[in-house]
Design a protein around this nucleic acid. Sequence first.
DNA 1: GGATTTATCTGACCTAAGTCAGATAATATG
DNA 2: CATATTATCTGACTTAGGTCAGATAAATCC
Lengths: 291, 291
Amino acid sequence: MRYDPISHIRRFGRAVTIEVGALDTSFLGRGRPLGAARVLNAIGTGRSDVAEIRDYLSLDSGLMSRLLRSLEDESLIQTTPHPTDARRRVAILTKAGQQEFQAYENLSDARATALLDRAPHADELLRAMDMIASALGRDRIAIEAIDPRHEAARYCLGEYYAELQRRFENGFDVSRSRDPDAADMMQPRGAFLVAISDGLPIGCVGLKGTGGDVAEIKRLWIDQTARGLGIAKRLMHAAETAARERSIKTLRLDTNSALHEAIKLYRESGWVEIDRFNDDPYPDHFFEKHL
Amino acid sequence: MRYDPISHIRRFGRAVTIEVGALDTSFLGRGRPLGAARVLNAIGTGRSDVAEIRDYLSLDSGLMSRLLRSLEDESLIQTTPHPTDARRRVAILTKAGQQEFQAYENLSDARATALLDRAPHADELLRAMDMIASALGRDRIAIEAIDPRHEAARYCLGEYYAELQRRFENGFDVSRSRDPDAADMMQPRGAFLVAISDGLPIGCVGLKGTGGDVAEIKRLWIDQTARGLGIAKRLMHAAETAARERSIKTLRLDTNSALHEAIKLYRESGWVEIDRFNDDPYPDHFFEKHL
DNA sequence: GGATTTATCTGACCTAAGTCAGATAATATG
DNA sequence: CATATTATCTGACTTAGGTCAGATAAATCC
């Protein structure tokens, strides 16, 4: 058959190439070459170290220097020496730069909104986009430790609770479960790790420590559209590493038989089933692992 | 919440921009600027008229001319005057050009294959890509009349039968249904129309004529990932237009109650239910429309 | 403390891409 | 048949993007 899987992927490639081109063209409407717009965008999204931006955008140092000068000439950015390394420079947006950055953001948002408004099944479309973004970006998925009260963490936890609500026969009410103290999932006792894919959190795990040599693994979640990419394994591995760094000797966790992929993962990676060790109403399986 | 739908779309944008950029970079490995590669590709995929290529790639006439010269200098293409309009030129690939075109195709295919091989759920991923390609490319979906024995038509019919097999309670066996004669769905008696989106057929409908002033609508199918975009309506509209052009006064069709979206569409667009007019074992609903 | 490495900047240079104004020849229009 | 239009080509020009070889100053290494 002619319309094999590759034909479908290549059709997808044609469609998104046209879309990407259209977005670039709309960016040019602001009277600035794309290179300068990209640098402005990198600074606007929090990258301030010039070397970091250069690396992120794979730019030659000469070109980078000229792009920074042109943005400075427009009074969109200011550069100052790096506080601890005087060879380096850091760039920040001026007030005008923030406005200009926001104008680019608005162009992107407008395209996204227009697409959503016209889409017949917006939620399905978003799921499809998430799945593809995760598949294409799998080599760029990074595990980061963040504050469990940070918005990325709160987003992950919200999705995690929503998934338990869907999967547990009688639903899930977070207030009936013991919600760990944020401080127990932060330095120095514990950690909260998220998997970030192209800027969006797609998975998380918590290491809840007490200061002693026993700690608990909590809130392991992977977005449905990002499963099968080995992210859970990476998160668990990172959590164990964090535990060792905190001199933790024994890890425990509780889970529910509805979460069979998770239970399979635990069994395959050295966890052994133990007796119930708490009175939380939801879990029915309990595991332990010695580090 | 920060991670609203727009964040997801923009993450998707970042991921595919990187992918598109990587493909472009791999194309540069063949030692030719992208512009020339695009023209070569356009010629390779069947566009021979220079003006048509220029329009398709939105190129300035001067730039186009120079790109053609550079491809001629490499002996990859040959240009000759247009057979009926001596102002125009047509370009075709030489033997070396065909090889070079194939080399680009292989690069694309290799990327697609690599993606599929690593994907955890390849079929889901392909569905996601189809859905996004249809949503992004909805303005480029074209209705074309083709030979029902053409591969695009056979693909549509295969997908149509597969869908009936899934949706009918007792499955569907095409040999038990009367398969229309190809000649009845071609000029001058009938037509076979397909909806093409970025090169891939995503829907079809047949107009089966007998030479008289009554004809039948057959094989209305829209790919699952392309529903809600109004393609069925456009196909039915095009079929009615084709019927009028063939002096047909009355259209009939049979369908099955499992195909409720189709039945809804017929009811909403002027079709009225009539008595059974054939002994095909599958249909249980019969409609008619006077043009 | 001297040698080496690193980050940035500057000038010179290059290619790709695209624009613009004619020139030419053929076709279409009235 | 004169005029307008169309398709292509050519030369002149511009901008964007990127490379390369030093220059400079700071940090790091031995």
